[in-house]
């Protein structure tokens, strides 16, 4: 039972949202201009991926039209999107839909 004191209102019923924020996907789309070697270079620089992983993503972009480069907190996803846009790569952010 909650203790009551004069002048202090005790809220018995509080609501705390403990759900985690929805993760976001950083997606890079294919474009006809940027060179494969350049796109690989950008993925290595921005995400710190080793060359084989960066090349895998680059090939996915080239062959399938897009690749999910990273998934996680929205703030960090926006930082990555800014860097990718500064590097002239077509980038979008999408929330991960609940399964």
């Amino acid at each position: 039972m909650a203790e009551t004191r004069p002048g202090i209102e005790v809220l018995e019923d509080t609501d705390t949202d403990t759900r985690l924020a929805k993760p976001w996907k950083v997606i890079v789309h294919d474009d006809p201009i940027n060179l494969m070697v350049y796109v690989t270079h950008v993925f290595m620089k921005i995400f710190g991926y080793p060359k084989p992983r960066a090349e895998r993503h680059m090939l996915e972009v080239h062959q399938q039209g897009r690749s999910i480069l990273w998934t996680g907190a929205r703030e960090q996803a926006e930082v990555y999107a800014l860097k990718l846009r500064a590097a002239q790569l077509t980038t979008t952010l999408e929330p991960v839909e609940a399964a």
């Binding site: 474009d31 006809p32 201009i33 940027n34 350049y38 270079h41 500064a86 590097a87 002239q88």
Partner: peptide
């Protein structure tokens, strides 16, 4: 490296260049 990308992509957009071309 990034400025060259900016010019290339701008020209590509301006002339709507396609991968085949």
């Amino acid at each position: 490296i990034s400025s060259l990308a900016a010019v290339r992509v701008a020209l590509g957009g301006l002339h709507d260049l396609k991968e085949e071309e």
